[in-house]
């Protein structure tokens, strides 16, 4: 049982990070009905920004995290303005191509500036690990879990209990109806990209610190896993993304422990295929249906 609980802790840690990233996919999909395939690369840039703030500007971890989130949020807004807004009225396929273009650009940009090699992410993080019997919860795990939980609670509050959050949910239900309420949909879209990108930066930095590795293509695997989590939970659903992320993290880690660690990724993507076959709307997704 110790193995089970240890893997549960490990799974929840990674899963909470998947969830943070999945939220960006799901929120953007909810409003624009597009998959932002550059999301993982926005995460990567956010992580490098965090690294630069720590290494070159000697910021402490928390201020660096917050500042990186802020800068990445602005970058997210910029990406939407430049790459998605001009093609919003066009076919969804065009937006997809645009996203791939942004993805390629960001990876190449990072390679140009920081090289192709893997950078360590050394930070001074304080705190004692928690040891429960044989189960060991490391300091970094506590931080990763704590920060992502805090961000998710914050997001939940924003979306459900602020005027802007309600407007965001309304826009994700129907853009034209939202316009008729006087909601400036362009602003809502900007804010959605800002929040999604900030959460991705936070997740990326925590991943970078957790694995002590930052590199230009780190967004691919993180992005793909989180995308799976978003689909698992039901794309477009915010609680779904949170649940999907945690579930994927746990299943992946338990699977690796009991089957073979080599199957870790296979488990995630097998899960994606199964979900798409059995319940394409995901665990908490809603069918696009209206009462007339």
């Amino acid at each position: 049982m110790d193995v089970f609980f240890q893997q549960l802790v490990n799974g929840l840690t990674v899963g909470s990070l998947y969830a943070l990233i999945a939220l960006g996919y799901t929120m953007v999909y909810g409003i624009l009905k597009i998959i932002n395939f550059a999301h993982g690369d926005i995460l990567m840039i956010g992580t490098f920004i965090g690294l630069v703030l720590v290494m070159n500007f000697h910021l402490a971890f928390v201020p660096a995290l917050l500042l990186a989130m802020f800068i990445t949020a602005l970058m997210g807004i910029l990406v939407e303005r430049l790459a998605y807004r001009p093609v919003r009225a066009a076919d969804k396929l065009i937006a997809l191509l645009s996203a791939l273009g942004v993805s390629i650009f960001l990876v190449n940009f990072a390679q140009l500036v920081w090289g192709t090699e893997t950078h360590p992410f050394p930070v001074n993080i304080s705190g004692e690990p928690i040891i429960l019997g044989e189960v060991h919860i490391g300091t970094l795990q506590i931080w990763a879990l704590g920060v992502s939980l805090l961000l998710m609670v914050g997001l939940h509050f924003f979306v459900n209990h602020t005027k802007m959050g309600v407007a965001m949910r309304a826009t994700s239900f129907n853009v034209d109806y939202a316009r008729l309420m006087g909601i400036n949909v362009d602003n809502i879209i900007s804010i959605t990209f800002a929040i999604g990108s900030a959460l991705a930066a936070a997740a990326g930095i925590l991943i970078g610190v957790y694995y002590d590795a930052v590199y230009p293509v780190m967004g691919y695997s993180a992005g793909l896993k989180a995308f799976t989590a978003a689909v698992l939970g039901g794309i477009g659903s915010i609680p779904g993304a949170m649940l999907g992320g945690l579930l994927l993290g746990v299943l992946e880690n338990e699977g690796a422990a009991y089957l073979s660690s080599g199957y870790k990724d296979a488990i995630a993507f097998a899960l994606l295929i199964i979900i798409l076959l059995i319940k394409p709307t995901g665990l908490m997704g809603r069918r696009e249906q209206q009462k007339v």
Partner: peptide
Amino acid sequence: VPEGRGIFANL
């Protein structure tokens, strides 16, 4: 009040 009422079914 748009055609089909335009209420937000999720709110």
